[in-house]
């Protein structure tokens, strides 16, 4: 378990800007999405003086953007110890394969 957390911690440190962007998009989505629950003819002024119709466009964009950022983040984390190729540093280090896999799965689970 120690090695799983060690690799996980390394990925968290390495990808903190991507994690931060992903969290920001998720937070923005959580804040804006309820606009879509309003009736479509509600075109009044909402948060920050922006029209609800504009928020609808943004909410729909975030709906797509959010899973895309997750997938990019997960793909980058997996590729940091790529399974394919013969130049990866971890191939000749005392990495335990199942633990490496577990750390990546843990990251995936945490992302969702």
């Amino acid at each position: 378990m120690k090695q799983v957390l060690h690799i996980f911690g390394k990925d968290m440190r390495r990808f903190w800007p991507e994690i931060l962007i992903s969290l920001a998009i998720t937070a923005a989505f959580a804040r804006i999405y309820p606009i879509l629950w309003l009736p479509e003819n509600n075109t009044g002024v909402g948060m920050l003086g922006v029209h609800n119709s504009q928020f609808r466009i943004l909410a729909n964009a975030l709906l797509i953007l959010m899973p895309v950022t997750w997938w990019i983040l997960i793909a980058r984390v997996i590729h940091s110890e790529s399974m394919v190729g013969d130049k990866q540093f971890w191939l000749t280090r005392p990495y335990d394969w199942p633990k490496l896999l577990a750390s990546k799965l843990l990251f995936g689970v945490m992302s969702f």
Binding site: F89, T92, R93, P94, D96
Partner: peptide, 28 residues
């Protein structure tokens, strides 16, 4: 895995933790 605890390997072509500082690589 653990068998590599006794083996050091250095290659001009091997990828490194390029994103990390020297200190962080050693810490890792």
């Amino acid at each position: 895995g653990e068998k590599f605890r006794q083996i050091g390997y250095i290659s001009e072509n091997q990828e490194m933790l390029d994103w990390a500082t020297v200190g962080r690589m050693l810490d890792y």
